[in-house]
Amino acid sequence: MSSRFTLKSLLALLGLVVLLLLAVAAKEFRLYERAWFTVQEWHHEAHWKDVSLWLPDYRVVIDGLELEDLEDVSALTYDPDRKSLFTVTNRDMQLVELSLDGRILRRIALRGFVDPEAVEYIGPGVYVISDEREQRLVRVQIDEQTRELDASAGQQISLGIGTNGNKGFEGLAYDPQGHRLFVAKERDPVRIYEIRGFPLLDPQQPFAVHVANDPQRDARLFVRDISSLHYDVRTGHLLALSDESRLALELNADGEPISSLSLLRGQHGLKRFVPQAEGLTSDDEGNLYLVSEPNLFYVFKKKAE
């Protein structure tokens, strides 16, 4: 009787420990909020489907293409003038131009950077590159002859906002109409900052930078990190990519999550999960492009109605 009672007690205790661990994990991975959003997303479809990107309608058409001779690709931006993509590598530090089907078009060496982590198109030939560890933003300019870029030659600012080692500025997005640069702090905590005044578009104007954030919006982001941002000009919506949550979220103009794209195997036609999503952007037609470390390339397009 005593041994049976002891065994039951141990099993009950073990069950309690398991439940507690599951509860802690659910809180850590924001599973409660994510499950509630899944319910909300069903209701969002009727209102948002025709006036947003509506990520549930996307299907993968290039699934994990290996980018030859590249390692540690990080970030992605679309250049509407060149009809091409740009990414950065933070091991050998290059700015790399890619075709829309994942071919390497050219490489530009980066000098004077410590940890280039994001790149964003601003205007014809003008980009901003973030140096994650130093929380530094550097404006660079390229043309057809550019083969090397030196950070010291570009307009730059450093922002000591919540410095936390290798959890600094991970994603960039630019609103060309509002002249707003969105900067994502990776985690601990997740933050999206809005910067006005950088890069300086008119050299005749005084250099004045204003930085703002929206804690209420950031609290609604049920992701563990942000690895990339993209601003969609057509809708005015922001896309936030999370590597650890294996998810992309579409945020409306009020910062509310309205649709999502899962990066798990079997979702959106993926044959296997996306291992380490680091960059996300879209082109003029709304096609989505994604890169994952070490060198994987994905394209998602909306399914035919």
Rank of each mutant, 00 (worst) to 15 (best):
A219D: 14
M93P: 01
R111F: 09
L11N: 05
A46Y: 05
V209R: 01
V209Q: 03
I226E: 01
R4N: 06
V209T: 07
E305Q: 08
G162K: 02
W48P: 01
I161L: 15
S84G: 04
Y78V: 12
L100A: 08
N295W: 10
G165K: 12
L270D: 02
Q267Y: 10
I104V: 15
P294L: 15
G197V: 02
S227K: 06
L76F: 06
S3E: 15
L65Y: 10
L296I: 07
T281S: 11
V60E: 07
L16E: 10
H44N: 10
D283R: 02
G168K: 10
I157Q: 04
G178Y: 11
D57Q: 07
L249P: 06
V88H: 05
S242A: 12
R91D: 11
R220T: 10
S52I: 00
V138D: 09
A240C: 08
E117H: 09
R106G: 09
A46R: 01
F37N: 07
F300N: 00
N295P: 05
V190E: 07
T77P: 06
P206L: 03
L20H: 13
F297S: 01
F300A: 00
H237A: 03
V114C: 13
D284W: 02
P294I: 14
Q155R: 00
A212N: 12
E41T: 12
L241Y: 03
N90Q: 08
L31T: 09
T281D: 10
V88P: 03
L85V: 06
R265C: 12
S84K: 01
R133C: 09
V17L: 13
D188V: 08
H43C: 07
L19T: 12
F273H: 08
D57F: 06
D218P: 13
L290Y: 09
N287K: 11
L20R: 07
L263Q: 05
K301F: 11
P56K: 08
E71T: 10
K83A: 12
R106S: 11
E186N: 10
T163Q: 05
L16P: 04
A75W: 02
T6V: 15
R111T: 11
E45L: 08
D115P: 02
L249N: 04
D131M: 08
G171H: 14
V209L: 04
L172A: 03
G125C: 07
D92S: 13
V126M: 00
V126A: 00
K271F: 10
G197Q: 02
L290D: 08
V114L: 13
G64Q: 05
K167S: 13
G123I: 03
Y298D: 04
N213S: 15
D50V: 03
L70S: 01
G64K: 01
R220H: 15
S3R: 14
L19F: 07
K303E: 11
V24C: 06
L229K: 03
